[in-house]
């Protein structure tokens, strides 16, 4: 994947966001008056974002229009990206399931899923790890840290 194209698109989005911050007066709500003004620093930062994003966009656009050869860091290898999507998917399901099914029920399946994704096939140690780790974390958090991880609510 050509990073220069991503640079142009992302920089454009950042520049739009910066212009919105610079021009919109409804981004802060309520509060007292101060010498500085609530939007002073965000606008200064937005101004810098505009400058740096524009610099990156122009540099990348120039290289793109000249058809310059891609340098080392400008090539984004997409190999193995499917694994990333699956991992993020597992994490989202984990986040959605934990409040209902509880930490102790959900975590072993998540650990099994991640181990499987990483090519683990030694079932007995993997299953043992997936069961023992959540139990240790759950009781460890409760007894030592006084943190109560979510439990089954269905």
């Amino acid at each position: 994947m050509d990073r220069r194209k991503i640079d142009v698109v992302l920089s454009t989005l950042l520049m739009i966001a910066a212009v919105i911050i610079l021009t919109n007066d409804n981004l802060a709500d309520g509060g007292a008056e101060s010498d500085l003004g609530i939007m002073f620093l965000p606008r200064v930062v937005a101004g810098f974002i505009l400058i740096f994003a524009a610099t990156i966009a122009i540099q990348s656009f120039m290289k793109l229009s000249k058809g310059a050869e891609l340098e080392g860091q400008e090539v984004i290898s997409t190999e193995g990206f499917s694994g990333i999507f699956i991992y993020i998917g597992i994490f989202i399901v984990y986040w959605l399931a934990v409040p209902h099914l509880g930490f102790m029920v959900t975590t072993p399946f998540v650990m099994l899923g991640v181990a499987l994704l990483l090519g683990g096939r030694n079932w007995i140690p993997i299953i043992a790890m997936s069961v023992i780790t959540p139990v240790l974390i759950y009781y460890g958090s409760r007894e030592f840290l006084r943190v109560y991880l979510p439990t089954w609510t269905l």
């Binding site: 994490f91 975590t107 998540v110 181990a115 140690p125 974390i137």
Partner: peptide
Amino acid sequence: YFIFPCVTVFAF
């Protein structure tokens, strides 16, 4: 596959 499932749960 033993380390990173644990890291995931610790991060969570």
